[in-house]
Computed example of a mutant assay.
Amino acid sequence: MTDAATGTRTVVVEREFPFPPDRLWRALTQPHLIEAWLMKNDFRPEVGHRFNLRGDWGGVLDCEVLALEPNRTLAYSWNHAHDDPAYALNSVVTFTLTPTETGTHLRMEQAGFRADQRQAFGGAGAGWRQFFENLEQTLAQADR
């Protein structure tokens, strides 16, 4: 998806999870669960809280909680500084949870990829699909 006004692109990944919204919400907002499916972090569910996500590859993402509506919406900046502008990323990740008859529909949008960031854009699409696989496994193993 491309934003006509800015020319930036957005990765969208959607998936149905067989768990209620409150259970999915915990996995999106509790640091030990975020670490299990995404990355090490110092997240707190507070608008304005600045935190880091630390990848196994040694990279650090600088983030800030932008929006928070429990069991419905979570948005945060997802910024990666890099010497090469093609790899520097200033984006926003938004999770939207919608209850369904069988669980929760989760939609993730990562907006802000510039046209010259084809590799990062493609990698994000594949990466989020893998993160969602990890999330489902984490949810299946987490205390109910």
Rank of each mutant, 00 (worst) to 15 (best):
L106Q: 09
F121M: 04
G127C: 06
D3I: 03
E101N: 13
Q141H: 15
V12Q: 09
T98Q: 11
L106H: 15
E14L: 00
A126F: 14
P21E: 11
E109H: 04
E133M: 02
I34Y: 05
A81C: 05
N79V: 11
L33K: 06
F131C: 14
G112M: 02
T29P: 07
G127D: 04
L97R: 07
E69P: 01
L28S: 12
R9S: 06
E109F: 04
T29R: 08
D116G: 05
A120K: 05
T98E: 12
F51E: 01
G125A: 13
P20A: 08
A81M: 03
N52S: 06
L74N: 05
L74F: 09
S77W: 08
R144V: 07
G103W: 13
H105R: 14
H49K: 01
A4G: 05
G59N: 12
F132V: 05
G127Y: 11
A120C: 01
R54P: 04
R114I: 06
A124G: 04
G125L: 13
L28N: 02
V47Y: 12
W78T: 03
L139E: 10
S77F: 14
A81Q: 09
T8W: 03
Y87V: 02
V47L: 12
R72N: 10
P85T: 13
D22H: 12
L33T: 06
T2S: 09
D56S: 01
L33Q: 01
G59D: 12
T104S: 05
P70T: 04
L106N: 04
F113N: 07
E14P: 07
A67E: 09
D83K: 07
L53C: 13
F95N: 07
D84G: 03
I34K: 00
D116H: 08
F131N: 06
M108Q: 13
D42T: 12
T100Q: 11
A5D: 09
L28T: 10
R50I: 00
N52A: 03
R50N: 03
E14V: 07
D116K: 05
F121C: 10
V92E: 09
A86L: 07
H49N: 03
Q119S: 11
Q119R: 15
E69Y: 07
T8R: 10
T29V: 08
L38N: 05
F131D: 10
A124D: 00
A111N: 07
A4W: 01
T2R: 14
A4Y: 04
W57Q: 05
A120R: 02
V93S: 12
H80S: 09
D3H: 15
Y76W: 07
T6H: 14
P20W: 06
D22W: 09
D143Y: 01
L97Y: 07
K40S: 08
H49L: 03
L89C: 00
A5L: 11
A86Q: 02
A142Y: 00
L106E: 03
D56T: 13
P85K: 14
A86R: 08
L97M: 11
V65R: 00
A88R: 12
E16W: 11
Q137L: 14
G55S: 13
G58A: 00
A124S: 10
L68Y: 06
A120I: 05
D22F: 07
T29I: 13
Q137S: 03
I34L: 14
H80T: 04
F95T: 02
R9V: 02
Q137C: 01
H32T: 01
R9A: 12
P70S: 00
L106W: 03
F43V: 00
F19G: 04
V92P: 02
T73P: 03
